[in-house]
């Protein structure tokens, strides 16, 4: 069993702030990740994701704020805090001049894993990540997917309680990405706490218990993917295609419709009341002599929530407040 303090939250950050000169990269953010949770951290490029992860993992010091990892204050007890976490950075950083085996053994030595355990663990991880037959090859000969699998294996050499992953499947082939997602699920089932930074909304939707969306260094929303989707009003959609082109201004007048967007041969009607909208749409088509080819109702996706909160380049305070208010009402 790892040397961890008895704590409900494995990751806690309070008022975390990072300034680079005049630029505020991360602005007073609070994060709490419970033990055994997969926590997704989403945000557009330059929003402050990687800076936040680097502060949480002790790679860089925050300008202000406090981080506790498994109960250890990262500033006062950096070694103990780092011993309970594994880190997978955004870009692969295994040593190219070392073999896969040597990279794993180096990690074991850096994290104080006994030599006997290290050998058995390295064997197991190489098999788990499909790298065993290449274990004595220099990492520079590995493909991007193999390197990424090795880096994840390296982060697991110390059998950490907490795993930080920064874009672990970015740019990988489907098989490598699927293998990594599967491993993350297994690790979570084993009780590991996972902090996952990703650009892939579907990945966050499938894997995460809760997600935080960061924009311009501030947390815009934190909740479970389903609750976030449910709380975002106006993102329900009716997807319809007609046999003839239709004037969108007619559709805007339908009951409950807040927006109309066309994409290819389909038209999307954004509505809070999909049932009423469909009824009126059918009536409208009857009276106008139009024929509906297909009709689907779509619920909001995590991507919709993300776009709504970050898509205009600014944190929508109204949207963030609405979510916060909804969260308070829930609790």
């Amino acid at each position: 069993m790892k040397n961890t303090k008895n704590t409900k939250n494995m990751i806690e950050a309070e008022g975390l702030t990072k300034n680079y000169g005049e630029v505020v990269a991360v602005d007073h953010i609070d994060i709490e990740v419970a033990s055994g949770e997969i926590f997704g951290f989403l945000g557009p490029n330059g929003a402050g994701k990687t800076t936040t992860v680097r502060m949480l993992t002790g790679i860089i010091r925050p300008t202000r704020g406090r981080v506790r990892i498994a109960g250890f204050d990262l500033r006062r007890d950096p070694i103990k805090a780092k011993e309970v976490m594994g880190v997978v950075p955004e870009l692969s950083n295994a040593y190219n001049g070392l073999s896969a085996w040597r990279n794993l053994q180096l990690m074991a030595e850096l994290y104080g894993v006994p030599a006997k355990d290290a050998k058995a663990r390295a064997e197991g991880l190489l098999v788990r990540f499909g790298l065993h037959d290449r274990k004595d090859h220099k990492t520079r000969t590995f493909s991007k997917g193999m390197k990424q699998r090795l880096v994840i294996a390296m982060s697991l050499m110390s059998d950490p309680e907490i795993l930080f992953l920064d874009e672990p499947t970015s740019g990988l082939d489907v098989l490598s990405a699927r293998m990594i997602k599967e491993v993350l699920r297994e690790l979570n089932n084993e009780g590991k706490t996972i902090f996952l930074t990703t650009h892939y909304m579907e990945e966050a939707n499938q894997l995460c218990n809760r997600v935080a969306i960061i924009n311009h260094g501030k947390i815009a929303a934190v909740d479970s993917p389903e609750k976030l989707k449910a709380r975002m009003g106006g993102l329900g959609r009716v997807e319809v295609s007609f046999d003839t082109p239709v004037d969108s201004s007619d559709l805007r007048r339908l009951s409950g419709v807040t927006d109309v967007r066309a994409s290819g041969d389909k038209t999307y009607l954004y509505t809070d009341e999909p049932g009423r909208t469909i009824q009126h749409l059918v009536d409208c088509c009857r009276s106008g002599g139009m024929e509906i080819v297909t009709l689907n109702t779509l619920t909001p996706t995590l991507e919709d929530v993300f776009i709504k909160l970050t898509g205009d380049g600014e944190v929508s305070v109204g949207d963030a407040n609405a979510l916060e208010g909804a969260a308070n009402n829930d609790s």
Binding site: I59, I79, V87, A94
Partner: peptide, 8 residues
């Protein structure tokens, strides 16, 4: 970065 994240 790998070394900076390690407990050293």
């Amino acid at each position: 970065e790998r070394l900076a994240a390690a407990p050293v």
